[in-house]
């Protein structure tokens, strides 16, 4: 089992340095990394988007808006699961990027919410987005589309450690 765990760890670290999701965007004192989304099932009307925002400045900023030509409507949402019940809410005021801190948008929490998709998000493609911050202004960038069910920007879905046992 430990050998498999080492294999899995190696696989994860290799994919973490894979070039696919390695782009980084700087906007004033903000650095955006791990910009990603997931492929959507056929005719799925919505998709989520995720990224990490690091603020090296001494003042807090705020992610206030997101837009993309690939969706009819884009918002910033927060998802919570409490007592087994999933709740999702739009954040009209956006979400704060703390001074000298990091804001993570990831599955199960804060996320970009794309509605009225014009076309499915396809694995391996890039979704252009414009992100707007209260202080730092706007930036045009893109999200890497990973597979359905991916847990992070390295494209890994669940169960890889178990799958290795039966591969090849």
């Amino acid at each position: 089992m430990s050998f498999h765990m080492i294999l899995a760890a190696v696989a994860v670290s290799v994919s973490l340095v894979a070039p696919a999701a390695a782009h980084e965007v700087t906007l004033g004192s903000l650095t955006l990394t791990e910009l990603w989304s997931r492929a959507t099932p056929p005719n799925a009307p919505t998709a989520g988007g995720y990224l990490t925002i690091t603020n090296t400045g001494d003042t807090a900023d705020r992610l206030v808006a997101v837009s993309t030509a690939q969706a009819g409507k884009s918002e910033i949402h927060e998802m919570t699961v409490s007592d087994g019940v999933m709740t999702m809410r739009p954040l009209a005021e956006g979400v704060e990027v703390p001074a000298n801190g990091t804001l993570v948008l990831a599955p199960g929490g804060f996320h970009l919410m794309f509605m009225k998709l014009q076309a499915p998000f396809v694995e391996g493609e890039e979704v252009p987005v414009t992100l707007t911050f209260e202080q730092a202004g706007s930036v045009d960038t893109f999200l890497h589309v990973m597979q359905i069910g991916a847990r992070g920007p390295d494209g890994h879905a669940g169960h890889d450690d178990m799958k290795m046992d039966m591969s090849e």
Binding site: T40, P41, M79, M88, F114, G149, A157
Partner: peptide
């Protein structure tokens, strides 16, 4: 199906 995270993730899992 309008759910972007939990539902497709659970289906995938």
């Amino acid at each position: 199906t309008y759910c972007p995270d939990v539902c497709p993730t659970t289906l995938f899992e």
